[in-house]
């Protein structure tokens, strides 16, 4: 699995759209090396002094970019991601919301075949605090530190990151998995990565109702796959079964996917469970001092 650091050279696919343009500027402010953009048919133009190309291959040839962030609308996102992977971009971060699940299935299968790390879709992206950001999270919330964050949601992730920063801890690397039913990364893959990452001393795990990814993460922690401290928050205790709570993936089906099931599993694995978001940061502060 490949994540990012200050050396990562980023290409922005869909850079000429409103979102692409806005977030390219915010990423550059943060220090991300955004070296090029891609919008088919707009090759030769510039967005805030970032050169735009028609294809990822051209951008790579001219600038040696090695990672891509995608803001392309849902109908074109699969092709954009396949293009990025075939041009050797790794990781590929798919911000786009509303991609048909059939397209995501193909995208993720191709990524596995090529060994590419895909973050998202429907993700706020990822950030290495103080170095580089490939995403849409607010810059001011993050400060270099020792807490790794894995989250399925966006704004709740910023909420908890802000508390972690306020406690004086700061973050190492933070990754938004994405709110769709099928996404490229799961908790376990990231826990494995954080286990080896020497800058990460503890992890905040932010989950929500739907599916069983949190339960599987708990099993992984329980069998000793991840040995650093974990503090978790699970959103959706007040949710009603069968109703989709905003995210396409946030739905309780039958008795599966409830917040209680997830909290119990994680608690059983030795993780701290926050009653409210701020508790996660306080618990980590206690452990890390």
């Amino acid at each position: 699995m490949k994540l990012i650091n200050k050396e990562t050279k980023v290409v922005v696919q869909g850079i000429t759209g409103t979102q692409g343009r806005f977030h390219t500027a915010r990423m550059k402010e943060y220090g991300t090396k955004v070296v090029a953009g891609v919008t088919p048919g707009r090759g030769g133009q510039e967005v805030d002094s970032t050169p735009v190309y028609d294809t990822v291959a051209e951008a790579k040839e001219k600038h040696g970019c090695d990672a891509s962030i995608i803001f392309v609308p849902a109908g074109g996102a699969l092709d954009a991601a396949l293009e990025a992977m075939e041009a050797g971009m790794d990781p590929v971060v798919v911000i786009t919301e509303g991609i048909p699940v059939r397209d995501t299935i193909e995208l993720v299968a191709r990524a596995r075949q090529l060994g590419t790390t895909v973050v998202g879709p429907n993700t706020p992206g990822l950030i290495k605090a103080g170095e580089s950001k490939m995403g849409i999270m607010p810059n001011q919330v993050f400060k270099r530190g020792s807490v790794g964050i894995i989250s399925r949601s966006g704004t709740l992730f910023y909420e908890i990151a802000a508390h972690v920063t306020n406690q004086g801890l700061g973050e190492s690397t933070c990754v938004g998995l994405g709110g769709d039913p099928v996404v490229g990364l799961d908790y376990i893959e990231l826990l494995k990565w954080f286990q080896k990452d020497s800058e990460t001393k503890a992890v905040a795990l932010i989950g929500e109702i739907g599916g069983d990814a949190e339960e599987k993460a708990a099993d992984f922690i329980a069998v000793g796959g991840f040995t650093k401290p974990v503090a978790a928050y699970i959103a959706g205790r007040a949710a009603i079964p069968g109703k989709r709570m905003g995210h396409a993936g946030a739905i309780i089906q039958g008795s599966a996917g409830t917040a209680d099931s997830k909290m119990n599993a994680l608690r059983g694995a030795g993780a701290f469970i926050g009653e409210q978001p701020v508790d996660v940061a306080k618990a980590l502060k206690k452990v890390l001092g």
């Binding site: 966006g154 709740l156 909420e159 959103a235 205790r237 007040a238 905003g246 409210q276």
Partner: peptide, 14 residues
């Protein structure tokens, strides 16, 4: 955001 809004419901319940 779905996660934050869910967390808001949960906190009210708490």
């Amino acid at each position: 955001g779905a996660g934050l809004t869910m967390a808001t419901l949960d906190t009210v319940m708490l």
